[in-house]
Design a protein around this nucleic acid. Structure first.
Lengths: 132, 132
DNA sequence: CAAAGATTGTGATGATATATCATCTTTAAA
DNA sequence: TTTAAAGATGATATATCATCACAATCTTTG
């Protein structure tokens, strides 16, 4: 009865989440939603943009994924919001977890009675290797 | 000499810059590039996306305009990069010029020998009025 | 004037994100 | 068990954001 082989091969709830987190964790750099779909396709998982974004929304809410807003790309996260340094020359992104700027930012939000839920701290410039 | 579209009303150099800065300064909130084009259209200025983006690039480089990366929108600037607080409830954006988080961020960049050119500090959450 | 270079205008295209609708599964109530 | 409601899924279409390519026009300069 619950054979599930009737009509479309439908996935279990949240099965896609695992597929996407795996793709993201294998990537050393942030990747876009459509690139995620392409990577999934290589593993024989056809995902529409809607499916990818729905999943990303869940993962973002759970802080398992972080969005690099200045380049519309996504990386794995681990609860903490990091500071992202994006090199315009080589394209590499270095993410660090530094408390002082975040604390200062929290303090600023508090001073204007703004309740923060998500923060984005991103820096564009040139990395160490590309400078020399 | 291929085409015969010789009736183009051509603008003076950088005339569009003024049109766009005026539109942005009249708007109390960040607006997107296509919305800028629509506003310009109301003033009898037909601007293509290319024209708007070209102009925005110049204004961004001159720091006369700032880009809110998390919502792909633009606001007038005044040299300094500000911290943007975006209310998810009412959509209002409050921009503040606070030095402490920016200094802390500069220090982080320096510690990893990263030369920063542009920074984006954005906070999403709920503003004071929407909280109460 | 003529060449060179910058700026503009336009259409096409690429890239990112959402809307909509139909189907299926789970859950819980009747 | 039957049924209805809620939530998750799959697929197509569309909206939104951004860039590219190329020709036409203007400005500068020799």
């Amino acid at each position: 009865m619950t054979d599930s082989s009737a009509g479309n091969a439908r996935r279990k709830p949240f099965e896609i989440d695992g597929i996407i987190t795996e793709i993201l964790s294998r990537s050393s750099q942030p990747i876009g939603a459509y690139e995620i779909a392409r990577q999934a396709r290589k593993q024989a998982h056809r995902l529409s943009p809607t499916q990818v974004y729905r999943c990303l929304d869940r993962l973002l809410a759970a802080r398992e994924v972080e969005r690099i807003v200045s380049i519309n790309a996504y990386v794995t996260a681990s609860g903490h919001e990091r500071i992202h340094l994006l090199c315009k020359t080589c394209g590499e992104v270095k993410s660090v977890d530094e408390n002082i700027p975040k604390e200062a930012l929290r303090s600023v939000a508090k001073s204007v009675k703004f309740q923060a839920s998500t923060t984005h701290i991103e820096v564009q410039g040139q990395c160490r290797s590309c400078r020399s």
